[in-house]
Design a protein around this nucleic acid. Structure first.
Length: 115
RNA sequence: AAAUUAACUGAGAUGAUCGCCCGCCUUCGCUUUCCACUUCGUAAAAAGCUAUGGCGUGGCUGAGCCUUUAUAAUAAAGGGCUUGCCACGCCAUAGCACAAAACGGAGUUGAGUGCGAAGGCGGGAGGAUAAAGUCCGAACACCAAUAAAAAGGUAGUUGGUAACGCCAACCGGCUGAUAAAGUGAUUUAUCGGUCAGAACAAGUACAACAGAAAAUAUUCCUUCUUGAGUGAAGGCUGCAAAGCUGAAUCGAAAGAUAAGGGUGAAAUGGUUAGAUAAUGAGCUAACCCGCUAAUUUGGUGACAAAUUAGAAGAGGCAAACUUUAGCUGGUGCAAGACCAAAUAGGCCCCUUACGGGGCGGGUAGGUUGCUUGAGACUAUGGGCGACUGUAGUCCUAGAUAGAUGAUCAUCCUUGACAGAAUUCGGCUUAUGAGGUUAAUUUAGGC
RNA sequence: CGGGGUGUGGCGCAGUUGGCUAGCGCGCGUCGUUUGGGACGAUGAGGCCGGAGGUUCGAGUCCUCUCACCCCGA
């Protein structure tokens, strides 16, 4: 789990993000993001039953995504809310490529400040 | 020995780094509440009390003086003035105006609540009791009102259970193996398997194709009896043509139709004797099998055994309608309870009005419901068993966009199925390697 | 957490009061027609009805369990 300050909690925030936010597509993930006034950027993760019916597999992807983001947290700019949605292909990735993909995507969006 | 099936067992380990959730403790910070103390405000005055002084009124008549009766003298009594004392009233000044309690503000100290930060300690995902399917049964909560109807599901009996469509034991049907008896069908015994196992002898419906006929049975073939008629072979007459005779054959029609045949998933029990025109048939009689009812005996009961009577032989299907018995109110923890920004109508107050304030209401949001329970384990008693009595020990996840891990390294037997969401009891379904037990089959040996 | 539906040739659908081992359209193959293609005509192949078990003489249809997919409510 991420520390509490970095979690995107509220239903209304997530709904508005889905409605108004911009999207960035990867083959394995969909990333939705929106500028807000939040001081640390807030992040949420979504893995639906369409990815896999087994709860075990879904939990595993969620954990790996969280860990990947956690390593990138210090370099993420303030003032964004981000929603990461897993697609079916994410099941096949290992941890290293997940972090690589996240770095690439966040840098493209302009959220990631590090290299 | 191998294979298969079933049941039981089994369900990776260690370390490093970085993280998450819950509880407890310590420290710090903030918030907030309470107690104590201090202080301020409401609070300023009036009234009040005390003291002193002044004035007034009244009383006492103590003291002094004057006066009248009232004078020879005395002066009782009265009156006046001054003074004193007492009481009351008024005024002024000073002091008291406490303590306690109430509301509000500030401060200090202490204690507690909550939040945050840091540190420490402890706990944190299973063995199908599945977290799954959501197929049943309950607890709990709210709504409704106790009924009836409708609808739904249940169905041998008895027991277990909080309850159940679950479980256990038993009964009955069908069926397998083994053994014994019998020529055999079969019967008996033992060990299994299986059954949604109430009622079709209350009513209604259904049964393709085939077949004569498919539901109050019927009569196609075959067969039997009677037999109009036809008139073959043969025989007789006749040279011949032809005629006569001749029914064991053919055959209109009528009656009977058991055994046999054939169709189909399914076609109305058996033995013996009798009656007839005749082979014959529950057509009749006796017996067997089966059925229904009653009684008796055994059993809690399903049921079993025996006896008696009846009827005349009855088909299948209720996972067809239906009938019978007994059961079920509805909605689900996103139930519900509490706090509560926002906002509408409502009520009250202020205001000429605009408008403002309060109450109430209740959305977002938060808190709770939430994990100690028909609880687990152990021992022991009861029961064929499911299960249960008693005693002892233990407390074992509780999140809320949802924790219980991620990465790396090493080792081994190389890791299947699987991730809590209100909580229990069941059922169904997924599960690798290895191990244990049982049954069956196969092969080999004795 | 709760409720509902669908599954039948390659594709889209009928058949759901049990009864001839199941039809229709499109598509596909072959032949004809045409110079050739399309269209048209003729003809043919292709299914055991998602899976397992049961009831029944007989199941796509009835019952039970199960798998996959889709939809809805709070």
């Amino acid at each position: 789990m991420l520390p509490v300050a970095y979690r995107l909690h509220k239903e209304t925030e997530i709904k508005s993000l889905i409605r108004q936010g911009q999207t960035f597509f990867l083959p394995e993930f969909i990333i939705k993001y929106q500028k807000t006034k939040e001081k640390p950027s807030k992040i949420a993760f979504v893995v639906s039953t369409k990815v896999d019916k087994k709860a075990v597999a879904r939990n595993r992807i969620k954990r790996q995504m969280r860990e990947a983001i956690k390593d990138l947290l210090p370099d993420i700019k303030d003032g964004y809310s981000i929603l990461v949605i897993a697609r079916k292909k994410a099941l096949e990735l290992d941890f290293a490529t997940i972090t690589k993909q996240f770095k690439f995507a966040l840098a493209k969006i302009g959220v990631y400040a590090g290299k």
